[in-house]
Design a protein around this nucleic acid. Structure first.
Lengths: 206, 206
DNA sequence: TCCAATCTGTAGCGATCGCTACAGATAGTC
DNA sequence: GACTATCTGTAGCGATCGCTACAGATTGGA
């Protein structure tokens, strides 16, 4: 039987496999035996390579944000206007959340909803990430109000919360079986609410 | 020590206690020992009065829909126009999801998000309830298109999915700590997307 | 007053959880 | 080719899971 020597499994491939399992079943819904089966390694290899379940999950989330969820960070980095940013966030979610090549929805939104008291830390970790994104968006909207891109009476907090709520709702709908076409329709309807700029057109439409 | 005879605990009060625990921690995140502690009974009493955990949960969800979640069924039953119905659904969610008297968000949306394979049935049960509501709303919107209440080119499927996504997103935002005031702002923004009726005003506003 | 019925509390069942001790097997070093 | 280091597989740890057998306690009816 083939044993030992240097590591015989691909660490990143194992992380990818773990990502899909956590994405599908959530943190508490995923057991170590499910993980080792999907990653095709045994428990001691998992613990040697990734620490414990909690540490593995954090690494999975970070890798998720740099791969599947990258469109979010890209939108924040590349879009200079709040209007363009929100358009990219919402339509990116619509485009990606129901792709057939991976579990539906967003891992950060869906993976820690059921918190047994012992797993409270994980729920808080993901909630902090979600809220940080909302606060970042709110700041960008506030900037757009200051610069005159958006009307002066725009409610930055409410608008940021609205955008984030729509995205999270699209994630949930994707999990409930809605397809990409319908999600795109949802995204376009959501964008119609966007406050009309003082003298310009609203976001580009499909 | 006080034992036996006829039942010594209030069945409905025990159900209420179970509801709050499931609402807070979800189905799989709630253990029998948590339930028995909250309901102030011992495991044999729980199983005698409510069957197993799965049956208890279904009864909890039904009771939830008849109490905390009643505003949904009331809106469907009492509102005659699609516009009025959607207004009540969205503003009702905004009003109730961040109340301090109970866990935030909606039990039906939040309580079965993390599905270990063994709990798949519970996830499907709640997803069916959510999707049934969406389909019902879609049918009401289709009726409103037929009757001329809404423009003929309205996308009933997309619009129903949008409304449901907003409500589910508000539930998630409430769980992430957003207060009622902000949820109300989110709801009003969401309603601005509502298609303009051929010749009438849109829904009443706050 | 005594019995049958019913409920409650204790205690623990088998299964699974996250995690790890231990020993067998392989690679590089000299 | 022996030695050391490292990784892998088996096997099982204590704890908790959902659930229940059993017996003690109390009630209503005969």
């Amino acid at each position: 039987m083939a044993r030992s020597g240097p590591r015989t499994f691909d660490r990143d491939a194992a992380l990818e496999a773990a990502t899909l399992v956590f994405w599908e079943h959530g943190y508490s819904g995923t057991s170590i035996s499910q993980l080792t089966a999907a990653m095709k390694i045994n428990p001691p290899s998992l613990y040697a390579a990734f620490g414990d379940k909690r540490t593995l999950f954090t690494e999975v989330v970070n890798r998720y944000n740099a791969t599947y969820g990258r469109f979010m960070a890209d939108a924040f980095a590349e879009e200079t206007t709040a209007t363009g940013l929100v358009h990219r966030l919402i339509m990116g979610a619509a485009e990606h959340y129901a792709e057939g090549s991976h579990p539906p929805g967003c891992l950060v939104i869906a993976a820690a909803a059921n918190n047994s008291p012992g797993n409270a830390e994980v729920s808080i970790e993901l909630a902090d990430r979600r809220n940080a994104n909302r606060d970042l968006l709110q700041a960008r909207i506030a900037d757009a109000i200051s610069s005159g891109e958006l009307p002066a009476d725009t409610d930055a907090r409410g608008l940021a919360t609205y955008v984030v709520a729509v995205i999270q709702g699209m994630s949930q709908q994707a999990r409930d079986g809605v397809n990409t076409e319908t999600l795109m329709a949802v995204g376009e309807m959501a964008l119609r609410t966007w406050p009309v700029p003082p003298m310009a057109t609203t976001a580009r439409r499909g």
